[in-house]
């Protein structure tokens, strides 16, 4: 168990963040995080805290590094060849890039939902059960059934699929597939859920359902969501972080960001002058 150096926190954190941190507790924190793809520096030193049970939205123009940053939070960047990460990311004060830390454990705690729904070409049941089986969360079939049901219920999909759990997950509609992926992520009881543009491939009705779901999930999970839709960020998030060319320009309460942005780049982006 490694603790975050308190000096670093005080020195780097801005006032508002530390206030929230004090009131709500920091779930994850990034300190001077840099990501390189080969020689190309995709993220240029980001400091950010993610609070417990909040929804934080990452917005910014394409290529600004918001997805890359999201993926540093559960080390999905590790899977990319010649990607190098500097800086420190902690989860509950524990360094997630510590060589002694098991990345499997980290990903069980920090789940992820991707841009395109990616259910396994297996039954709905097996899709949900895959994670719990991996981690040995259910000892008996009955327990597993229960996990599957509760995950599907939390994802608001149970009523729609309860009669066809043995049917392929790939046979569902796009929105249902994405909720299936969310249910799959929930099934391993993560603490944080990362969502990488989860609605960009969905129609407005399916999008609305996912947004509703995010709202409900925030009671038990911390959620970081990357989105291209500013309306979505405004609707679902408590705080919004604006990224620009690999740098974190501004992070604030969502309302503040959208009504009274501190930085002119943020203002330019949210008023649609570029993006």
């Amino acid at each position: 168990m490694k603790m975050v150096d308190p000096d670093v926190m005080v020195r780097r954190d801005d006032d508002r963040q530390s206030q929230r941190a004090a009131s709500q507790g920091v779930k994850m924190s990034a300190r001077d995080v840099k990501v390189f793809y080969g020689d190309n520096e995709a993220i240029k030193g980001i400091d950010l805290d993610i609070m417990e049970n909040e929804v934080i939205a990452f917005i910014g123009p394409s290529g600004c590094g918001k997805s890359t940053f999201l993926r540093t939070l559960n080390r999905m960047n590790d899977t990319i060849e010649n990607c190098r990460i500097e800086g420190k990311v902690t989860l509950d004060g524990e360094d997630i890039y510590d060589p002694s830390l098991d990345v499997v454990l980290l990903r069980a705690k920090v789940g992820m939902v991707f841009q395109k729904p990616n259910p396994f070409p297996k039954s709905i049941y097996d899709n949900i059960a895959y994670g719990p089986r991996l981690h040995g969360l259910a000892k008996r079939k009955y327990d597993l059934d229960e996990i599957v049901e509760s995950s599907l219920r939390k994802a608001g999909l149970w009523e729609e699929v309860k009669d066809r759990l043995d049917r392929p997950g790939t046979g569902l509609s796009g929105g249902q597939q994405q909720r299936l992926c969310i249910a799959r992520a929930i099934a391993v009881s993560p603490e944080v859920i990362l969502m990488d543009e989860p609605c960009s491939a969905l129609d407005p009705i399916a999008t609305a359902k996912i947004e509703e779901l995010i709202d409900e999930l925030t009671e038990s999970y911390t959620i970081a969501i990357v989105t291209h839709s500013m309306q979505q960020a405004a609707r679902v998030s408590h705080r919004t972080a604006y990224f620009h060319l690999g740098e974190l320009v501004e992070v604030n309460d969502t309302e503040t960001v959208f009504t009274n942005p501190e930085h002119e780049l943020t203002e330019a982006y949210i008023t649609g002058r570029f993006g």
Partner: peptide
């Protein structure tokens, strides 16, 4: 095999070997 399948398994906490052999 689409890379999204690999990512899905990895993001759930499957190891490389598990991802390859199970998915």
């Amino acid at each position: 095999v689409p890379p999204s399948i690999r990512q899905a398994a990895l993001a759930l906490g499957a190891s490389r070997v598990q991802t390859v052999f199970q998915q």
